[in-house]
Amino acid sequence: MQSPGIFFGAVQGRGFGVISMKVKAQKKGLYISLLIVSSGLLIIGLGPGLFNHPDLGGYSWQHMVFDPVCHQIPERSFSINGQSMAVCSRSLGIYGGFAVMVLLMPLIPRFFTVINSLLLKLIIASIVVNFVDVLVNYFSIWSNTLHSRFWLGASFGVSLALYLTNEFFKRINTQENYYGE
């Protein structure tokens, strides 16, 4: 993977240089596994409505899969084809945000500089914000919505995947110098 490069003009007398930006892929097997697993979790999490299965009021094999890790309350979940998803809207945000960013991982270093320390703070902040959102909603200080829960969940999933980006794809800037003949 190689970008067209950034021309930076004549340097050092007669020569000129081109900074070319490459994205180096590493640990490909692990990345492919992560991509398959995260996409699989998202597809299963979308629930029986995605496969047009009959409406059984939230009882399906997809709901069984996520039963240990999500409350799956229909009123707090999105629905497809009239059937509630197998995960709540917050969990959908987490799994969806994570899966989409894992899919986009190869492109991220081409356009953004990944700063791990900042992303780690973002992860912690998103956990705290989600925690606070649940508590204040429980104590009726405010009412969150399907969409607010989804986006708060997504903030966690996205920042988690971004944090892992440069383990799999690293930006490498190389300078090639050309000298006049």
């Binding site: 890790v69 999500c70 409350h71 707090r76 649940v134 429980y138």
Partner: peptide
Amino acid sequence: FTVSQAIGTFAC
């Protein structure tokens, strides 16, 4: 939204 469901929110 019960305590039980609030607990479930963090199960993941």
